[in-house]
């Protein structure tokens, strides 16, 4: 935690508020709270908790929450279950593709401390070291009620301005970048991009 602060003070030039729209900021805050679009990206076993949430019984569309396949439009990223290094690469790339007020909800105990995979060689134990988490739900697996509760917590945090994971990611980018590089090796982004887009 101490390391993060050092990096934050280095650059004081990041502006979060658009000056011309400052007057409408309360309105935008309300809109952000009421319309959270989820990236349709499921890791691990928690993806199976999404269909009950979306269908008739728990129906999260009541609150304006909608699964959206395009990461550019989405606001909320659910990490549903354990994260392997291979998935983590995709998660980081998707998280960086999302546009700025973006929120991340870790789902279940695996992203918090590894859960039942605590001694596995191939599971990322603490997701918070690689990307910032806004709300974490404990449990294995959390039931849809718990997930809904977590989403409500995110809504409350958006209203009070506490859901600032995207700010923390910008301020402490070097910290997160260093941890990512330690896990994957230097230059992993370029290597990964070359695998799919050979002409770059």
């Amino acid at each position: 935690m101490d390391e993060r602060k050092d990096f934050g003070e280095n650059d004081g030039v990041i502006h979060y508020e658009l000056q011309e729209f400052k007057l409408f900021e309360p309105l935008f805050k309300w809109a952000r709270k009421k319309s959270l679009w989820i990236v349709a990206f499921c890791t691990g076993c928690g993806g199976i908790e999404m269909p009950p949430l979306a269908t008739a019984r728990y129906d999260f569309e009541r609150f304006g929450i909608m699964p959206n396949p395009a990461p550019r439009m989405a606001d909320l990223f659910l990490i549903t279950g354990y994260v392997t290094p291979k998935t983590l690469k995709r998660i980081i790339i998707t998280y960086e593709m999302m546009q700025d007020p973006k929120y991340l909800l870790a789902h279940g105990s695996c992203p918090i401390n590894g859960g039942v995979y605590w001694d596995s060689y191939n599971v990322v134990k603490q997701l918070d070291k690689y990307i910032p988490i806004d709300v974490a739900i404990a449990g294995c697996m959390p039931r849809p009620e718990a997930v809904m509760d977590g989403i409500m917590e995110i809504m409350r945090k958006i209203e009070t301005g506490e859901a600032d994971g995207w700010k923390r990611y910008r301020e402490n980018y070097e910290y997160y970048r260093r941890n990512q590089d330690k896990l994957f090796g230097e230059g992993w982004r370029e290597k990964e991009a070359k695998r799919w887009l050979a002409w770059i």
């Binding site: 729209f21 809109a31 952000r32 009421k34 319309s35 606001d75 700025d100």
Partner: peptide, 14 residues
């Protein structure tokens, strides 16, 4: 709801 969605998209910071 679509009005809220549009407002939210307008309020994106990048």
């Amino acid at each position: 709801q679509p009005i809220i969605d549009t407002l939210k998209l307008l309020g994106k910071k990048e």
